[in-house]
Each structure stands twice: as structure tokens, then as C-alpha cells.
Amino acid sequence: MQMIEMILSPLLALIIGIFFLGLSRKIMARIQWRYGPPITQPVIDVIRLFSQKSVSHGKLFNLGIIFSLAGSLVLVLFLPLAQICPLSGSGGMLVILYMMLLAPLGIALSGGESANPNTSIGISRKFILALGYEVPLLLILLALMTHYKTISIVHIVSIQQNTGWAFVSLPLLLSGIAYVLILPAILGIRPFEVVQASQEISSGPMAEYGGPFLALATIQHALSLFIGIALFVNLFLGGAGNLLIFFLKMLVVFVLVLFVNAALPRLRIEQAVKYLWRWPTLLAFIGMIIVLIVRR
């Protein structure tokens, strides 16, 4: 049974992630009064990319992208998708937090070997942005773990299914709001689209990828989109009893985030970090104190 889950959960993540990519292009197009590409366009792109030529800058250039994709795929195994969670008892939230590092680190190592200035700028921005949103994110996650007295994400989900969503429970309300405020930064979309900023630094870390490399990078991007939203659904919207509800919850969150993406322009990296370290951090900090008071 566990073996089937092991195969099923990354596959599901992949399908949902790619579907979201297609959906985002369609919705963005409609918001901008365009017709937009068919929803299956990313699938077609990935298949096409696998047959195209590419360049490589060395061993680490190849390994880094594998490392990054592997990191995202393993991370999916730690996330509960409705009731499916193949690696529930192997380290909990702390491993998830660390696994979230692997994907950007892999891309950074890979991109670092190509001596491309755009890549360098993108990587530098990615790490600064990550430091920016990790400050509130860690406060939020710690508030959650302290409140539920567990470091296992499966427990957090099951407690919420018994007692109601964390987002609407009073002690965690502020943390939930802070999470919503930083969600676009975690997903790397506008107004926090500083890393890939295609008009500025020609896709940043992606600049040197082509062919199969770009295909893997796209798959990784889809997975990270999936992970960002699934984490929020699990932690604050109570996960789900079955896959359909889980998917619907994810879809609602994603569409709402897309509206933000469509409405706001891109910030500069300093502005982004200043924003992240101001309001979301303040809310998360107060949320944490409330949790501590309730716990006493």
C-alpha cells in the first residue's frame, strides 16, 4: 500500500502542478482580455522540450537540476494529500522546512556553474527573497506547532479535522492572515516575481536552460507551485478527507492568488524584503505571542 502511495502522490502533484500552470496562463489571459493558450499548453511544451537540443556547462550544471527536482519530489512525499502521506513518520515539519531549501539550492548550484550574470542576479534575489519570507513563515509555522504541540504535519491536519480549520480558530487567526500576505512571495508570483523577472533579467536562474533542462525546470516549477499551495491548505485550511475536496481547496486558493498576480506590479527586491519584514512579520509575531498566552 505504501509503495502505491509513494508512486501516486508525486504523480498527482505533477498533474495538479502542470494543470495549475496551464490554468494560470488561461486565467491571466482572460483577465487581460486575451483568448490565451489551451490549458494543456504546458504539457505540450514539456514534451516538446524533451526532444529539443540543449547546452551544458559542466557536471554540476546537470546534477544541480536533478538535485533540485529530486528535492521537490521528495518533499511531496512528506506532504499529506488528503489521506495520502507516504513518509509521515520520518521527521515531520522540520524535514519539510529543510526540503524546501533543496530546490532553490539545486538550481542555484546548477546556474552558478554557468557564468551568466543574469543567473547570478536571479540567484542572489532568490536567496534574499527567501530570507525575506522565511522570517514571517517560520514565526507562523512555529506558532502552529506550538499551538498543536506537535512537529508532525499529519497530526496538525488530523487535529484540524477534529476541531476545525486553523485559519478560523481564534489564536491562529493572525498567523493565518500573515500567511496569506506572504503566499505570493512563497510562490514567487507578482508582486514578488523578482527572481524570474523575465523582462529584466531574462528569467534569471532559468536563463541557461534549454531542451530537457528546461523541461525539468518547468516540472520543478510546477511542483513548487503545488507544494506552496498544498502546504497552506494542509496547515491552515485543515487538509481534506478526500482528494476531490483537497483539490478544490487548492484550486480556490490558487485562483485567488492569481488575481493578486494579475492586479499588482512587480516590486523591487528591497521593497519586497522591507514589506515582508514589516507587516507580515508584525502580524506573525503578535500571533505567536497570542499562541503563547493561550498555551499558558
Binding site: F50, S51, V55, H57, L69
Partner: peptide, 28 residues
């Protein structure tokens, strides 16, 4: 898990045509 998944990712990279090795300065 990391081992198996890395092998899968590696195989995925192998599906496509072999990448052309270029000098480091040869960038876009």
C-alpha cells in the same frame, strides 16, 4: 526516497538528446 527520486530525475534528463558541452563564457 532521495536516492530513488534522484535516479528518476536523472533518467528523465537522459530521455532527451544529449546536451552539447559548451565553454563557460558561452552564455545567453
Amino acid at each position: 526516497a532521495v536516492l530513488i527520486v534522484s535516479i528518476i530525475a536523472w533518467l528523465m534528463l537522459k530521455i532527451g538528446p544529449k546536451a552539447v558541452s559548451v565553454a563557460q563564457e558561452d552564455t545567453y
